[in-house]
Amino acid sequence: MNALEVNDLCKAYQAFTLDNISFELPSGCIMGLVGENGAGKSTTIKLILNMIKRDRGTVKLLGKDNRDNFVDIAEDLGVVLDEVGFAEVLNSVQVGKIMSKTFKNWNQKVYEEYLDRFSLPRKKKFKNYSKGMKMKLGIAVALSHDPKLLVLDEATSGLDPVVRDDFMDIVTEFTRDEGHSVLMSSHIVRDLEKVCDYIAFLNDGKLLLCEEKDRLYEKYCVIHCSKETFSELDNNAFLGKKESPYGIEAIADRSRIPSSFEVSPIDIEKLFIFMVKGDLE
């Protein structure tokens, strides 16, 4: 079963259009949504969460259309948006009390364990929290009602590297249960690369690719060569290239490069940058 199915999703604004986005997230997997600012990541997540109305397409969350019975679906969703929106006057204890009246499966013990794990104070008001602390509280809330699908929109922004690493461990732990899945967007591609099973690239409202991470490693490679050597190779083999005084660095389809050619493995960040910016002219 798929935790998330998005088909032909469209949303048009005056200056931006999200165009025919389709992808699937199988249960038990983590998908990373990668894109520049304004690429459409947050719009996609808002459409998935029914925060804005789609123009066309369908979204199925945990097997149900997200417009039907969202209240039931939301019981099984853990969401952390780019801004965690608790009232400024609340402290973490009061947030826990509100959430215990919100989610049927709320587990106060788990919540308090996360508060301890993230060293979050009990009595400090939310308005006096740092951005990182706010995110941690959002993450604690999202994980304390046994959700089946976690949706994280730039949830790691504002976190220091140590907590970010801890958070990535939590996400990995979460998906050990095959019924648990994660959709996360982040600017920090290296974080996504560490934990994601699937990677989706969004650029200018279009889905450039959505593939299993391991398949991307198998399919693509990086080559370094001179301009002369590059010109002898099949131009269709390349997704993008960068020229420098030392030669050419390019991302290529492994199957179209001669086996004798020396290649190095790609990383997801490089693949994304080359696909978006790599000049093949």
Binding site: L49, N50, M51, V71, D72, A74, E75, L77, V79, L81, E83, V84, G85, F86, A87, E88, T102, F103, K104, F126, V151
Partner: peptide, 17 residues
């Protein structure tokens, strides 16, 4: 107050109509 804190958006992803 909800608008300023973002609670008006945040509660829409919770089990509330």
């Amino acid at each position: 107050y909800d608008k300023r804190s973002g609670w008006n958006k945040y509660n829409t992803v919770m089990p509330y109509r």
